[in-house]
Write a protein that binds this DNA or RNA. Structure first.
Lengths: 189, 189
DNA sequence: CGACCCACTTGACAAATATCAATAAATCAG
DNA sequence: CTGATTTATTGATATTTGTCAAGTGGGTCG
């Protein structure tokens, strides 16, 4: 079973038959480092599954870029505002490396709903899961120090810290690169 | 049209016929100040519509309470983790005042799905909307100063600041009551 | 009325974080 | 490989925020 199949089954909890149908609607797509999967402000009806590589999700606020998240192999990438409501995307999603995606387009999305009647239910669960995760992240900002936020992120993503520029993690954590650097020095000693 | 009807129609975008069906599944419930609608750790299959009064959503972290949100008249209140996944609730939801709710229970929820086939789709949109809102809140923590976060919250909720203890707003904004007090003094001069 | 309980404010000080500037290390292009 | 560019670290300093302690004022209730 491919990572894609595993993830679809884990995240959406579907049968093998449904799996085959779902899979048939996702088309391969390749991005070179620096290419955009989604651009903020442009409407995108694309839901991607990240097979290989990493994407950075960010917006430009004033004169700086704010990185919301780094998506890694095996995860889904989508701008919900754009995908669900067909409004301009909130986020930029740019390839940090060479990237291979499997992409579901809105048009095929409707066929998917026809082929698998309880797809909206599946999707509801997916989005609800996303909600509880991001809600937890808000709580982290309300209850943890910069130190603690870093250590929590690092504990679950050790392998990423030598692949991704640290400044992006600093932004994700809501601190300057200098502060992150100092926290890391303290934590490693 | 009641606030409830308006909100259901706004949020879920349903017809009048469907509206009647939906409405029939929501049962009135009253809370006294201090009562809990949901308790963290207990599974609750309840989705509430807040007709009157205010609820505070918080968790206890270490030795302090972290307030995530104050819900006001006309909004829906639910612990998604509990409602969607039937797991223990993440949040406490406690009445800040005398409260009147309309409550949908999980059992009736299934009947609702039977009566309105595209209910999961409707619900998906609702949750997706919640997601985009909370995602924006994460961004605020990554990109704004304490000052700016306060001013933004205050701009949209002026009327609340003389009804709700300020310490709860301080917690929602991720700062101490002392800091909020000083920011307010600065902002008002 | 008066004692008490809250929530809020204020001040003094400590700790955390940002800013600015310089340097070192890593990465990339030719 | 080498120079150029980006990224990371470090130091000095300023700003922001937290902590602790004291004081104020409104509300409640015997």
């Amino acid at each position: 079973m491919t990572t894609f199949e595993q993830q679809i089954k884990n995240v959406f909890g579907v049968s093998n038959t449904e799996m085959t149908v779902i899979q048939s609607f996702f088309k391969p797509k390749v991005l070179q480092k620096g290419d955009y999967f989604i651009k903020s402000g442009q409407t995108s009806g694309n839901l991607g599954f990240l097979q290989k590589g990493m994407l950075r999700e960010f917006v430009v606020v004033g004169d700086k870029e704010i990185t919301k998240w780094i998506s890694t192999e095996g995860s889904f990438v989508v701008d919900l505002k754009s995908f669900v409501f067909k409004e301009p995307a909130r986020w930029n999603m740019q390839a940090l490396t060479y990237v291979e995606l499997l992409v579901l387009q809105t048009s095929d999305y409707h066929k998917l709903t026809d082929a698998i009647p309880h797809w909206p239910e599946i999707e509801k669960m997916f989005i609800a899961k996303c909600f509880t995760i991001i809600e937890e992240r808000v709580l982290q900002h309300l209850s943890l120090t910069a130190d603690e936020r870093y250590n929590q992120l690092f504990a679950y993503n050790k392998h990423l810290f030598n692949q991704v520029p640290l400044q992006y993690f600093a932004s994700m954590l809501g601190m300057t690169p200098e502060t992150l650097s100092r926290i890391r020095r303290k934590s490693s000693s």
